[in-house]
Simulated scan of single mutants.
Amino acid sequence: MAETKPGATPLRVATWNINSVRLRAPLLRQLMEELNPDVLCLQETKTPDEHFPHEAAEALGFTHRIITGMKGYNGVAVLSRLPLARLPDGKDWCGKGDCRHLGVAVDLPGGPLEVHNFYVPAGGDVPDAAVNPKFAHKLDFVAEVTDWTAGRGPARRSVLVGDLNIAPLEHDVWSHKQMVGIVSHTPVEVEAMTRWQAAGDWYDALRHFVPADQKLYTWWSYRAKDWRASDRGRRLDHMWVSQDLAGSLRRHAVLKDARDWVQTSDHVPVMLELAV
């Protein structure tokens, strides 16, 4: 594990599937009060670029923003207090033009930090690619990203975050036995994510802080009348870092209380602090 360089800059990176940035823009202030990130990656922004709530982001200190969105579906955005540049190797995954990935370089004193923000297809309800086109798309998407990752080689000075819509470990779901046949925790999805992670030699930063034998969730269904009491969660939101940054990890936060915010998302914000 690489050691932190002397004089490294503290950096807080957060990720949140906001489930409509225009509807939930007021909640960004609560997120800032709780986590105060320097870089915030959003998924499911659900708005074309021209309707993104720039004024709300600017008021919170996010003077640098790179977005890619579409009407009503998908969409990702990176909001930052620090200068950003869009990475040049963006792809149209599966040829669908559906705004599911944004790669940026964050300008830091120690050199640029790559941040990749992903929103992986959910996959529908039936875990069979032969009868469910949404599930087939999910597997194709992850396979394509894995090939792209392998072509780039092991990640360096990089962070990958987002709603990856897969809960790979036994304690990433409320019941492995009951969930193993449910989309997001099936063996084929877990194997696909494992190949993706290995292709970039990515390090699971959240499990750095919370051991794999402990429960860890970032999503609770809207369908649960009392989500906190039932606690049938899943870890669908992930934060990975390149191996050279593993030694720079300082702390994490899963903002579970955000699931109780008024008109909130079914996902909660997650944050890492690194010394980079």
Score class of each variant (00 low, 15 high):
E3P: 00
T4L: 08
A8F: 03
L11N: 10
A14F: 05
T15N: 10
N19T: 13
S20E: 05
R22A: 09
L28H: 06
L28E: 07
E34P: 02
D38G: 12
V39Q: 06
V39T: 09
L40K: 08
Q43I: 06
Q43S: 13
P48R: 14
P48H: 08
E50H: 12
P53H: 06
E55W: 03
A57Y: 00
E58A: 12
E58L: 11
A59T: 12
G61V: 12
R65D: 04
I66S: 05
I66W: 00
M70C: 11
V76G: 03
L79C: 13
L79K: 13
S80H: 03
R81F: 03
L82Y: 05
P83I: 02
P83V: 01
D89E: 15
K91H: 10
D92Y: 00
G97Q: 07
G97M: 07
G97H: 04
C99D: 04
R100G: 07
G103W: 02
A105T: 00
L108I: 13
G111N: 15
E114H: 09
Y119Q: 15
V120S: 02
V120G: 04
A122T: 06
G124L: 06
V126I: 14
P127L: 11
P133D: 05
K134A: 10
K134H: 07
K134I: 06
F135P: 02
F135K: 07
K138Y: 04
L139E: 05
D140A: 14
F141N: 13
F141I: 15
V142M: 12
V142W: 01
V145H: 01
G151W: 04
P154A: 15
R156S: 13
R156T: 14
R157C: 07
V159H: 03
G162T: 14
D163M: 07
L169H: 12
L169G: 05
S175C: 14
H176D: 09
H176P: 01
V180M: 07
H185Y: 02
T186L: 07
P187D: 09
A192V: 11
T194F: 01
A199P: 06
G200I: 08
Y203F: 14
D204M: 10
L206V: 10
P211H: 03
A212Y: 00
K215A: 13
Y222G: 12
R223Q: 11
W227T: 06
W227K: 13
W227L: 09
A229C: 04
R235Q: 08
H238C: 10
L245Y: 01
G247D: 07
G247A: 11
S248I: 05
R250P: 03
R250L: 12
A253E: 15
A253L: 11
K256H: 12
A258W: 02
R259P: 02
D260R: 11
W261P: 12
V262L: 11
Q263G: 08
T264N: 13
D266C: 08
D266V: 10
H267Y: 01
V268W: 00
V270R: 06
L272Q: 04
E273I: 00
A275C: 13
V276N: 02
